Computed example of a mutant assay.
Amino acid sequence: MSHLAAVLGHPISHSKSPALHRAAYALLGEDISYSAIDVTEDALPAFMSALRSEPDWRGLSVTMPLKSAMLHEVDEVRGIAQILRVVNTVVFEADGPVVRRIGYNTDVAGIVNAVRHAGSPPAPSAVILGGGGTAAAAVAALKDLGAASADVFIRDVNRGAEVKAASAGVGLEIRVLPFSEAGSAVAAADVVISTLPPRGADALADELSAGGLSADGVLLDAAYDPWPSRIAAAWQNAGGRVVPGLEMLIYQAAEQVRLFTGRGADVNEKVIDVMCDSVGAPRRVL
């Protein structure tokens, strides 16, 4: 029997998730058809309600702007998603004749694996750019990476509720600071995680380049189109190590593949390799 999975978001035509998931399922021999579906936040309740009459669904990947709204459309939230209140993965789980929808967050694992494989030190000094749902996942990831604290730079310091809730939930001390003050902190950090939209860090990149930045840390830029971003290019030119957002996407998608298929150790480096090949990314070992 063929099963269904999809990535939901708006807009969604740019998503690389279909290529990643299809490559993984082909290698694993899983009969799962994976598509991209454009769903707005307003349309999400009706869309999720309609799925209750369709028994073949295995899972949903959830991207912007639906990650917070999806909290209200699942029957249970598990793992770090309970703390972050941000869901980027929905698994359809049979409970007798009833199918329950379980919310997870795999962004944290995606960030941890991507940054760790780039050579993050054991207890990094850390900076996060942006204050939304992905920034909340970055707070949890930095806790897992051994950071003692993090500075979070956002354009409106009164809108840091998500990162503050994540900080309280995982026990990582943060300071929420104006984005205009990010330059010197970014240059000195061991790990910088930018959760800004494409081109959102361009002005900061220009500031760093003009200031003669010398970087020795790791920059993860969650935006991956266009690539390289201006801040990634500035960071690399200054001697730092750059992790593209595409790599984070691959690692979090691998976690989704495990959840959608019920598999474990066989979602391994061979699966990561074919996922990398599907989007033209350099190969990494999970």
Rank of each mutant, 00 (worst) to 15 (best):
V139T: 10
A148L: 15
R283V: 14
P122W: 07
E207W: 15
A123G: 15
A24V: 15
V127G: 03
V192F: 00
V267P: 00
N88K: 09
A166Q: 09
A166I: 14
V163P: 02
P45A: 06
V279D: 01
L8C: 02
D107G: 03
G103W: 05
V285F: 15
E162N: 15
L20P: 03
A140F: 12
Q82Y: 06
W235V: 00
G110E: 01
L249H: 07
R263E: 06
V98I: 12
P55M: 06
V192C: 01
K67P: 07
Y104F: 13
S229L: 09
E73H: 09
D190F: 02
R155V: 13
V176L: 06
Y34M: 05
D202F: 13
E41C: 06
G146Y: 09
T89R: 10
L142N: 13
G119Y: 07
V74N: 01
A166E: 07
V86W: 03
V115Y: 02
P11E: 10
A210I: 08
C276Y: 09
L20A: 06
S49R: 15
I83P: 03
R283S: 07
I37D: 06
E54N: 15
E41K: 12
S13R: 08
L20E: 04
N237I: 00
N113D: 14
H14R: 10
G212H: 02
A148P: 10
E76C: 13
L246D: 01
V91M: 11
M48P: 01
A137I: 15
T63W: 12
E73Y: 04
A94V: 10
G217S: 03
E181L: 11
A109Q: 09
A232T: 12
S61C: 12
